[in-house]
């Protein structure tokens, strides 16, 4: 299946969870927040939240800003 991650298309195996995605992005253990189709998915649900084809995922973190 294909999902949009931070605006870019990404191929993921069917049944992939947010935790799978974060691992694939080499971001496991980092402080970040995830939104799927404009809804927040709390960190505690990342291992169980299964992504679907066409989902729009945002993975964000804190950077310098004023």
């Amino acid at each position: 299946m294909q999902v949009q991650v931070n605006g870019d298309a990404m191929e993921l195996p069917n049944g992939a969870t947010i935790a799978t995605l974060i691992e694939k992005m080499a971001l496991a253990g980092k402080r970040l927040a995830v939104e799927v189709n404009e809804d927040i998915v709390p960190r505690s649900r990342h291992p169980e939240f299964t992504l679907s084809d066409g989902d729009r995922v945002e993975v964000v973190h804190a950077i310098g800003g004023g």
Partner: peptide
Amino acid sequence: VTVAVRRTNLGQNPDEPNLLDVISPDSYTI
């Protein structure tokens, strides 16, 4: 201390320190 919220870059250097490691929420009100 203010911070911005932005997309995590896919090609980011994983060794780059995270801002919140330098400006820890334990020491500052973020």
